[in-house]
């Protein structure tokens, strides 16, 4: 199928503005998933005993949905601060992958650009802008694409958090809105479970999360996460070895 983006003439000299708006437009469909998630976080933050300001500013300071949910849940459970911080850090280490994968396209930029784009490098913005970097011809303003996708995501996340904080108190418990958190994560995880290693990671993490419930300080979460990562990594490695020897 002919694709305008793959034709060098079409996009080699896209202006900064058109790169920016392309990033915004391509990011738009993901906002339907991000906005309810941010709203749920805003509600949950207050329920966990965070103040409105703590909840709202966490969305700028951490700017990572799953890690913010975990922060709020562990904080509400009275878990020691060091374990809260450690759990959040483990969850967010995955960004190193995005950073490594996108570095080749951004490394030439001035420091202030790399700091800004680094801050905006979330799962969702990465997923959209790496496609442009890899599949469309390079252009002098291509970093504006990530600026567009990242800024749309950032803005939606902040506003949906604030909205959640504002309406949170008015939503009755019978609506079971906190169930939206596992549902959000099901929407992310179910479609990406593809290989046997993926399934091993999920099964191990889920099992440890249940069996580890008696552990103090909600350590089940971090134990299950690390156990799942190890299981996936091991099965992956065994598969590769089996493939290499057969």
């Amino acid at each position: 199928m002919p694709n305008a983006q793959n034709s060098p003439k079409a996009s080699q000299n896209l202006s900064a503005r058109s790169e920016f708006w392309a990033g915004v437009c391509e990011e738009m469909p993901l906002i339907f998933g991000v906005a309810p998630f941010g709203l749920v976080f805003g509600v949950l933050g207050l329920e966990s005993g965070l103040t409105p300001w703590q909840t709202i500013l966490m969305s700028s300071i951490l700017f990572g949905g799953a890690s913010q949910i975990v922060f709020a849940q562990l904080w509400a459970a009275g878990v020691p601060a060091l374990i809260v911080g450690g759990s959040v850090c483990v969850i967010n280490t995955r960004h190193v992958l995005y950073s490594a994968s996108i570095a080749a396209y951004l490394r030439h930029l001035p420091l202030r650009w790399r700091i800004l784009l680094g801050y905006l490098l979330t799962d969702e913005a990465y997923a959209i802008s790496i496609r442009r970097f890899q599949h469309a011809p390079p252009g002098p303003h291509q970093h504006f694409h990530l600026l567009g996708s990242g800024m749309l995501l950032w803005t939606s996340w902040q506003f949906s958090t604030i909205f959640g904080v504002l309406v949170g108190g008015t939503i009755p418990d019978s609506w079971s809105l906190s169930f939206a958190i596992p549902l959000t994560f099901i929407a992310i995880v179910a479609p990406i479970l593809k290989t046997r290693a993926d399934l091993a990671a999920a099964a191990t993490a889920g099992t440890i999360a249940i069996l580890g419930q008696p552990l103090p300080w909600n350590l089940w979460l971090i134990t299950a996460a690390i156990g799942g990562i190890l299981a996936g990594w091991l099965v992956n490695r065994l598969n590769h070895q089996a493939g290499a020897t057969s």
């Binding site: 995880v189 999360a209 799942g228």
Partner: peptide, 8 residues
């Protein structure tokens, strides 16, 4: 494997 393990 971080997203799958953590979210599950």
């Amino acid at each position: 494997f971080v997203p799958i393990a953590v979210l599950t």
